[in-house]
Design a protein around this nucleic acid. Structure first.
Lengths: 188, 188
DNA sequence: TTGCATGACGGACGATCGTGCGCTTAATCT
DNA sequence: AGATTAAGCGCACGATCGTCCGTCATGCAA
């Protein structure tokens, strides 16, 4: 049910997920749908929650075993770009979609989104900082700029794929990430 | 009128711009509003057209006097990030908003968006290629990856500003662009 | 076996959606 | 001055929106 909502949201946006259309998709009555979530806002929140869960599973859980610092940072970039390129939703990475949809609005979805992304930002920031302290990155590294760059590049994979049909998008992003971080070029 | 639609679209997305709400904002009747555009789709297209016009004025027109190649490319990056950080819409850069909103859909808006962005991509690609030929950039520069990186970084300024309140977003983007392009660091 | 919670249903509600129609008013042109 | 055009209005339409209500079937607990 939530998966169906997420699929639809990835294509048309979270607030195009209407009770009626969702009911039609899962072959239920409108009453049956809203009975499970009480309200539309709750449905939206559960959808967002599912996306965060996905991201955690597909990205974070696969890299947390790496040693903190540069190794884990690079692993993150790889898992991240791979996830963004193949997120399992028909309309691309839903995390990206929701981010750009609700960045300028107010409300609980915006709040939850901010919280989730801040958590991820903190993880990135931590590993960049560790990498600097370990001497793997130059001492004058602008940590915030690096985090900004990584988030940027990951976020553009979806539009590059969907809009321009750029099937090298994930590679472009990973390549860019290495440049942003400042590690030397090498074969992926 | 179109400006009002664009203002609203920048915050809530292009298809939240409803005839009724727009009528309320500009203090007209619904009939009066739709009388000017015939259909909602036409209103959306005119809004998109306005954004392209804005972008052309604020970015392209200010850099076209620069010599082709690296100088113009860097000027582009500067004007671009400045525009994205202060686009004149309450909900941030509308170009970005529309891109992420309609990348995965089909229809005339998607089509027009693709056309417009392709034009811009071509301009970027041309100056990168010229810079390579002039010897200002290494010969093995991956042009497509550079274009991807520049678009990424510019596109993340809006969410960084609106979501995280990062008022250094434009600087982060410009800094990242220089790294993507591969020019040495220097004071902006 | 009886009782009851749960889940899904059809149906209805007020609101809002996009879009037509016919009228009045103001501006433009001959 | 008279005719013509255009813009904006009120109003109504069918659809769809989110939500609530009463009903019925199912399955578990007593």
């Amino acid at each position: 049910m939530v998966k169906a909502a997420a699929d639809l949201a990835s294509v048309e946006g979270l607030d195009s997920v209407t009770i009626g259309r969702l009911a039609e998709i899962v072959q239920m009555s409108k009453s049956g749908v809203i009975g499970q979530f009480r309200t539309k806002e709750a449905l939206q929140l559960e959808t967002v929650e599912m996306v965060f869960g996905d991201f955690r599973t597909r990205v974070w859980d696969t890299v947390k075993r790496f040693p903190a610092g540069l190794p884990r940072l690079l692993a993150m970039c790889e898992a991240w770009t791979e996830y963004a390129a193949d997120p399992g939703y028909p309309g691309g990475c839903l995390m990206t979609q929701v981010t750009y949809d609700y960045d300028g609005r107010s409300g609980v979805v915006h709040e939850r989104l901010l919280e989730g992304r801040n958590q991820w930002r903190a993880a990135l920031r931590a590993d960049v900082t560790t990498a600097v302290q370990a001497g793997d990155l130059p001492e004058d590294t602008d940590v915030e700029a690096v985090v900004f760059g990584l988030e940027s590049l990951a976020s553009f994979i979806t539009p590059a794929l969907l809009l321009h049909g750029d099937d090298r998008a994930a590679d472009h992003a990973y390549q860019g990430m290495r440049r942003i971080i400042g590690v030397t070029e090498e074969e992926r």
